[in-house]
């Protein structure tokens, strides 16, 4: 029963990987990597039931969070060229004033 879903998810991951390699823009690649990550979460979840090891669900849970943070971080690196927060100092100063 789970093997069909596993194969389908693997095919989808392959298609997403092909799009990530093909581009053409950086944003296409990041979107494809995001989709690949979502499919990985599902793959781990199905695998947990396939092998009967429910601990794997915790890994899927953590992966769902890390995937999002990773995508946003990669996006920030691509758009800004660094991880700095351009108006952090300003907003900190504003918070200090309001306190």
């Amino acid at each position: 029963m789970f093997i069909t879903a596993l194969l389908a998810i693997l095919v989808t991951m392959g298609l997403a990987l092909a799009r990530a390699l093909a581009g053409p823009t950086t944003y296409d690649r990041i979107a494809a990597v995001n989709m690949f990550g979502t499919k990985t979460v599902l793959l781990i979840a199905v695998l947990a039931f396939f092998t009967g090891r429910s601990d794997l669900l915790d890994i899927a849970l953590v992966y769902a969070l890390i995937n999002f943070i990773g995508v946003v971080a990669a996006l920030k690196l691509v758009t800004q060229g660094n991880f700095h927060c351009p108006d952090c100092n300003e907003s900190e100063a504003r918070q200090g004033e309001s306190k």
Binding site: M1, A5, A8, V11, T12, L15, L42
Partner: peptide, 9 residues
């Protein structure tokens, strides 16, 4: 599961 997999493809 199959419908989900198909939709993924």
């Amino acid at each position: 599961l199959t419908a989900g997999g198909a939709l993924g493809i």
